[in-house]
């Protein structure tokens, strides 16, 4: 049996209670010093192979495809031509803008609403867990369900919102929630926000559990108003949670696809188009797969900037262990 370099070394040295693996200890595990350990290789072989084949490999392959003119099977190298075309494409510009709108609304509205709700619901009143469950429940619905429900909500003639407005006496003109070029994208984002808020609330509720109540009490004793004690004590303590919420929201916003595909198909006139849907259309409706790949690469580069911030933070935590 191969030598195990696991938690044995620190335990043998000091018999520390929680023998955590450390990165520094990894240095002592260099192949030169100890026999090569086969166990991790065997454990990791299948998952790593599968992941490389279906996730990491495809990522690189898409980058390659973006430099080609391709129908998916045969491909001809055309260099930066796809990108040159892309930056002159009005649909691209409009989709990119919609992604930006989606992103800005996603990092503000669900974050604020989720935090607010978490603060309100962070108590032990009887029945509060049903309230939480109610707010959170849209999260378990698939986007197909959300789209079906909200398509009806927004429907101009017999949709729920317009009939309700009419019943309340505001029925003057029927609002085309998904047809009005200026309004449609916000309607789609609204449905997405409805599903997102509960998730953000949950993350904040978990974060609030780690906030030491005595700190808040101390602030109160010092005469801080509830708002001040939130602003100066609670919110700063929640910063790591907020970072995660914002990064997750950005990634979700850049993944926007399902609701657009289901509710508007990008219309009217690309006014609800997003890069994710544009990429799908170019690739699978027009078979311009090289072009689609280029859109995907742009999308990835945008999310990469955020993914890397997130990973850097995680890496710092790992190295501090």
């Amino acid at each position: 049996m191969a030598q195990i370099t696991g938690d044995k070394a620190p335990a043998a040295l000091g018999g520390t209670a929680a023998a955590r693996p450390t990165v520094r200890a990894a240095e002592s595990a260099r192949p030169g010093r100890r026999p090569l350990n086969l166990a991790p290789v065997l454990f990791l072989a299948a998952p790593v192979a599968l992941y490389l084949l279906w996730v990491i490999g495809p990522m690189f392959y898409t980058v390659y495809m973006s430099f080609t003119d391709s129908d998916g099977f045969r491909a001809e190298w055309i260099g930066l031509e796809n990108y040159r075309q892309l930056f002159q494409d009005d649909t691209f510009r409009s989709s990119l803008w919609n992604n930006v709108r989606w992103l800005l609304l996603f990092i503000t509205v669900p974050t604020a609403a989720g935090l607010g709700l978490a603060l309100l619901l962070n108590n032990n009143y009887p029945g509060v867990r049903f309230i939480k469950a109610g707010i959170f429940s849209p999260m378990v619905l698939s986007s197909a369900v959300v789209a079906a429900v909200w398509t009806w909500m927004y429907f101009p003639q017999d949709g729920l919102i317009n009939t309700t407005l009419a019943a309340l006496g505001y029925g003057g003109k029927r609002i085309g929630w998904l047809a009005d070029p200026d309004l449609a994208i916000y309607s789609v984002i609204g449905a997405a926000v409805w599903r997102q808020v509960g998730y953000v609330m949950l993350i904040y509720l978990a974060g609030l559990k780690n906030v030491d109540p005595s700190l808040v009490d101390a602030a109160r004793v010092d005469g801080a108003s509830p708002w001040r004690s939130f602003k100066d004590v609670v919110f700063p303590l929640l910063t790591p949670v907020t970072v995660i919420v914002v990064v997750v929201s950005i990634i979700d916003a850049l993944r926007a696809f399902d609701l657009v595909q289901l509710m508007t198909q990008g219309g009217p006139y690309d006014r609800t188009n997003v890069l994710g849907f544009m990429m799908y259309e170019e690739s699978f409706n027009y078979y311009k797969m090289g072009y689609g790949a280029a859109i995907a690469v742009v999308l990835m580069l945008i999310s990469m900037t955020f993914i890397f911030t997130y990973l850097r933070r995680m890496l710092k935590d790992e190295l501090e262990y």
């Binding site: 996730v55 898409t62 993944r255 990429m279 999310s303």
Partner: peptide, 14 residues
């Protein structure tokens, strides 16, 4: 970890 955060479109065609 990085892979789970990718936009799906970057994997779609391959």
């Amino acid at each position: 970890v990085g892979g789970t955060l990718l936009p799906y479109q970057i994997l779609m065609l391959p």
